[in-house]
């Protein structure tokens, strides 16, 4: 196995983390934000069942791979229930229609509202990251602060947004958009 610490394997490492993460977020499982805690319980227990030496080699990949599996299993189970209880159909369909995806206007407004609660500098930093695609180091250079300050502001922004964002579900309903 390649050494994840060596720079020669950055692309490799990136791919390993990236794929399972994408699959978790946009895979074929419908994950409501409210369900994330339950999924986390299950993911946690499954993580414990692997040997430490296995997980340590690529913990991020394990985390999101397991999460995506659990999410998919939940979706299958939901579908099963669905078959057995046809009268649930109406309510489920109705519910689906009002649910927001991350691309809906309501979700976009909500993200906008949450971002506006950040300090100007935090907004500036995540904007440079997501809009212009800069790296942390490039952002630091652009606005003339240290890399450490950039990372710290990122951390604070994400912590705040976790509490602030009131979205109903993750992007997981974007079926097959991977």
């Amino acid at each position: 196995m390649s050494d994840p610490g060596s720079k020669g394997h950055v692309a490799d490492w990136f791919r390993r983390l990236r794929t399972p993460l994408r699959r978790f977020l946009v895979g074929r499982g419908a994950v409501r934000v409210a369900d994330l805690d339950d999924i986390a319980q299950e993911v946690f227990l499954r993580l414990l069942r692997y040997r430490t030496s296995e997980v340590v080699s690529q913990p991020q990949a394990y985390l999101f791979k397991i999460a995506s599996n659990v999410a998919a299993e939940w979706a299958i189970r939901a579908r099963h229930r669905f078959e057995h209880e046809p009268h649930w159909l109406d309510s489920l369909v109705a519910e689906d229609q009002v649910e927001e995806t991350l691309d809906s206007a309501a979700a976009q407004n909500e993200i906008r509202r949450a971002v506006d609660t950040l300090t100007p500098r935090e907004r500036q930093i995540i904007k440079l990251y997501f809009e212009e695609g800069l790296t942390h180091a490039q952002i630091a250079e652009r606005i003339g602060v240290t890399l450490r300050v950039v990372r710290r502001d990122f951390e604070k922004s994400y912590s705040k947004l976790r509490g602030e964002l009131k979205l109903q579900q993750t992007g997981a309903l974007k079926y097959g958009s991977e």
Partner: peptide
């Protein structure tokens, strides 16, 4: 997982 969600939303 929640932080991943925040990142995804952004």
């Amino acid at each position: 997982l929640h932080v991943a969600h925040v990142h995804d939303a952004l």
